[in-house]
C-alpha cells in the first residue's frame, strides 16, 4: 500500500456539516458531520434503513438536506443541482438507459456537454478498455449484457464525466460471490490508479473491509463510528458496531466481575468485553488468562479456517481456528482468552 501523499498533507474533498434529512417526523439523517479526504476510498456501512442511500443522494445533489451544509473543497454546494456537480454515481439498480447501446450509455455525460460524436466515441472506446470490456461492446444493447458487464458499463458511464468524486450505492449487491470479489479488487485498483475520491455504500462488512481506507458505520441516521477497517474491527465503539463487524462473543462485566464466568477482571469496571472468534482458542494450563470447559457443538470448515461453536457455562460461543485444527463435535476441550488483552466497550 504505497501512497504518494501523507495523510497530514491530504486535502478535504467533501465536508458534511450537521447534515440532516427529515421525512415528516422520521429522521433519515440526523446531523451527520464528516470529512472525506481527497483520494480516499470511504465506505459507509450500515443495515438497511440506516440512512446510507439518503446520505449519498444528498451528496450527489439528488436530494436536499433539511438542515446542514455540504462543502466541496471548501465551496458550499448544498443547493447546487445534481447536473452541475462534478460528481458521478453508480446506482444500486445501475439505472442504465435500456433503450441505448452500451456506447451511448457510456458517452451520455459527454453528449450532455455537447461534445461531437467522433470525439465521444473515441473517449467511450478508452473507457470501455479501462473497465475491461473492450470496444467491441460499443454497439451492443445493454439489455444483452450480463450482470457483470452491466456493472462495468455503469462504471464507465460514471467515469465518462471525469468526476472529482465517485459515489457507489451498493452496486455489487446483485452479483454472485466470485464476480463480486473480482469487481471489488478491480474497483480498489481503479481507485488507486486514478487517485479519485470514492464514496461507497454497502451493507456488507466484508466488502467494506477489502476496499476501504476508512469506514463509517451508520445506524438510524447517525454515524456511530468512523475509522480504518482495523480500528473498527479491533476497537468497535459499542456492541452494535462489534456485532455488525462480524462474529463476536460479548461478555458483560459488572464491578470488575465477568458475570458469565464468575471471574474477575482488573482492567474493566463496568461494560462489555469484545472477544473476536480468533481470540478464543484452546489453552494449556500455563497459558495466561481465563480458562473454561467447552464442548464442541458444531464444526464449520470455511476453507482457510475452521469455525467452532462451543457449549460453555457462558452459553454458545464462537471460535475460529486455522484449518489445521482437528477438533470434532462432542470433544471436550479447555478454551480460554486473556481478558486483560481484550477490547471493552461501555455499552
Amino acid at each position: 500500500m504505497t501512497r504518494t501523499a501523507e495523510p497530514a498533507q491530504r486535502q478535504t474533498a467533501l465536508s458534511l456539516i450537521g447534515l440532516s434529512r427529515h421525512f415528516g417526523t422520521f429522521k433519515a439523517l440526523d446531523s451527520i458531520s464528516l470529512e472525506i479526504e481527497e483520494g480516499e476510498f470511504f465506505t459507509i456501512v450500515g443495515p438497511s434503513g440506516s440512512g446510507k442511500t439518503t446520505m449519498l443522494r444528498i451528496l450527489a445533489g439528488l436530494d436536499q438536506p433539511t438542515q446542514g451544509s455540504l462543502l466541496l473543497r471548501g465551496t458550499d454546494i448544498t443547493r447546487m443541482p445534481a447536473n452541475q456537480r462534478p460528481t458521478a454515481m453508480v446506482f444500486q439498480s445501475l439505472a442504465l438507459f435500456d433503450h441505448r447501446s452500451v456506447g451511448e450509455n457510456v458517452e451520455f455525460a459527454l453528449k450532455m456537454r455537447g461534445m461531437p460524436k467522433p470525439e465521444r466515441r473515441e473517449q467511450a472506446f478508452e473507457l470501455l478498455d479501462l473497465v475491461h470490456l473492450g470496444r467491441d461492446y460499443y454497439n451492443r444493447a445493454v439489455t444483452q449484457c450480463s450482470g457483470g458487464e452491466r456493472q462495468r458499463v455503469a462504471l464507465a458511464r460514471a467515469l465518462a464525466s471525469d468526476p472529482e468524486i465517485l459515489f457507489f450505492d451498493e452496486p455489487l449487491s446483485a452479483l454472485d460471490y466470485r464476480l463480486r470479489k473480482t469487481l471489488e479488487v478491480e474497483l480498489r485498483e481503479l481507485q488507486r490508479r486514478t487517485g479519485r475520491t470514492f464514496v461507497y455504500i454497502t451493507h456488507s462488512l466484508e466488502e467494506a473491509m477489502v476496499m476501504s481506507d476508512r469506514i463509517g458505520i451508520m445506524r438510524e441516521g447517525k454515524l456511530v463510528q468512523i475509522g480504518t477497517p482495523a480500528e473498527i474491527y479491533g476497537q468497535p465503539k459499542d456492541r452494535f458496531v462489534a456485532r455488525f463487524m462480524g462474529e463476536v462473543n460479548i461478555f458483560e462485566v459488572s464491578d470488575h466481575r465477568l458475570v458469565d464466568f464468575e471471574a474477575s477482571v482488573s482492567t474493566v469496571k463496568d461494560g462489555f468485553l469484545i472477544v473476536r472468534p480468533e481470540m478464543l482458542h484452546p489453552v494449556d494450563a500455563e497459558d495466561p488468562g481465563l480458562h473454561f470447559e467447552a464442548t464442541i457443538a458444531e464444526v464449520f470448515r470455511l476453507g482457510s479456517r475452521v469455525q467452532l461453536h462451543l457449549e460453555t457455562v457462558a452459553g454458545l460461543l464462537v471460535s475460529e481456528q486455522p484449518a489445521s485444527c482437528q477438533l470434532k463435535p462432542n470433544d471436550a476441550v479447555r478454551f480460554g482468552f486473556d481478558p486483560d488483552q481484550t477490547h471493552s466497550v461501555p455499552e
Binding site: L62, A82, N83, R85, M89, A95, F108
Partner: peptide
C-alpha cells in the same frame, strides 16, 4: 436520476 447526475 442517473441522467441528472451525468449533467442533463
Amino acid at each position: 436520476d442517473a441522467a441528472r447526475d451525468l449533467g442533463a
